[in-house]
Design a protein around this nucleic acid. Structure first.
Lengths: 202, 202
DNA sequence: AAATAGCTGTGACATTTGTCATGTTGGTCA
DNA sequence: TGACCAACATGACAAATGTCACAGCTATTT
């Protein structure tokens, strides 16, 4: 019997998955949560064989919970279950040594299959991710440039950006100009869009 | 026996719901799709008692499918199942005379309950929506202003906006200026953010 | 030691953006 | 009919933004 814990903040999916997982003879859901913090507390208490974690949840992300599990050397194996194939998320997940990474864009039977596989010691990643990894454009912007762009994203004018980052206005304009030429655009709005499309910022 | 059709583009949820709905003695899922277009074709063919539709789907949104169903005078009742409580979506759904509007932020048992209720002729809306409706800020921008803002959102400079909307540059700047003063901001980026936060645009 | 890359700055300039006053036209509503 | 508002426009001005060239400083790499 494989014991499970499920953390997923979308109630509809949470309850539906809990039910179908419990239908399997060899699977048992010990509990479920709709936010990361309660999930982490419960996981420590229940010590399930496998924790199925969504990434974007209130209070604590699934990735944070995964890191905690790893840091505490629990025997619990982690499967990340998320919507998007963002390579940054995936990289963090690999860093936290998760046993599986599955997209919500796969049928529920896949989840069941993955659960059984990780219990045999295998590591299972959604194939979409590996493809995405290699083809992912790498961010040409420097840390400082990203910082400036992030401020610009909140709609601040040059003066405010300069103030919050302790730079001169000229420098901020220079950074923005450099960003534009690197990204092949001519204004802040477009630059932000390109950066978001490439998942360099959210 | 109540016959159902399910349109939901997230496979995980689609397959999980299909399974648990089929577990109920009085419910039967005739089929399911992951995009609006196939859903609409299938619904015409199968004529289910109830169609459960996600809104954001490839090819055709759930709201479009709902309108088609209404226009064709099918006996199929529609339940919209979606993530966010956006009042614009909700209003469109009401306009399309849907029988139910449920958030994914409710457990799957609620869905089952709602299915049975709409079959008795009731109309069921998630309570969160009614609350949201009254408290929702209404959009102070005119149609034309919205059109300009939409173009601005794609990062186009004034000249391009003017060209695509067949306006003079001055008019475009005027509209933007009017928008800013209505929204209490001073640049495009902020205006777009306010508009999106208030769900006036996506 | 030299080359490279990132970080910071200045100054000057052209262009774009935002503001304001003002006007015409057409539709709606009391 | 008169008041009002949306749509569209011009012109003029101030402010913000974007571009370019140039330069000094500090790490890191070769």
């Amino acid at each position: 019997m494989i014991s499970l814990y499920l953390a997923e903040d979308q109630s509809m999916l949470n309850s539906a998955l809990t039910q179908i997982l419990n239908l399997e003879d060899d699977l048992q859901v010990l509990g479920s949560a709709e936010d990361g913090a309660t999930a982490w507390t419960q996981i420590q208490k229940l010590q399930p064989d496998v924790a199925i974690l969504d990434i974007e949840m209130p209070q604590m992300t699934g990735l944070e919970v995964a890191s905690q599990i790893q840091a505490s050397a629990l025997k619990t194996k982690v499967i990340i279950l998320t919507t998007f194939a963002q390579s940054t998320y995936f990289q963090q997940a690999v860093a936290a040594k998760v046993a599986g990474y599955l997209l919500k864009d796969s049928p529920s039977d896949d989840l069941i299959a993955v659960i059984r596989q990780v219990m045999t010691g295998k590591t299972v990643y959604a194939p979409e991710l590996v493809v995405n990894m290699v083809s992912a454009e790498h961010n040409p912007l420097t840390d400082r440039e990203m910082a400036v762009l992030a401020e610009a994203d909140s709609g601040l004018p040059t003066k405010q950006i300069a103030a919050t980052l302790f730079l001169s206005e000229g420098t901020v304009r220079n950074y923005l100009s450099a960003i534009f030429s690197k990204l092949g655009v001519h204004n802040r709005l477009e630059a932000i869009q390109v950066a978001k499309k490439n998942k360099w910022m959210r």
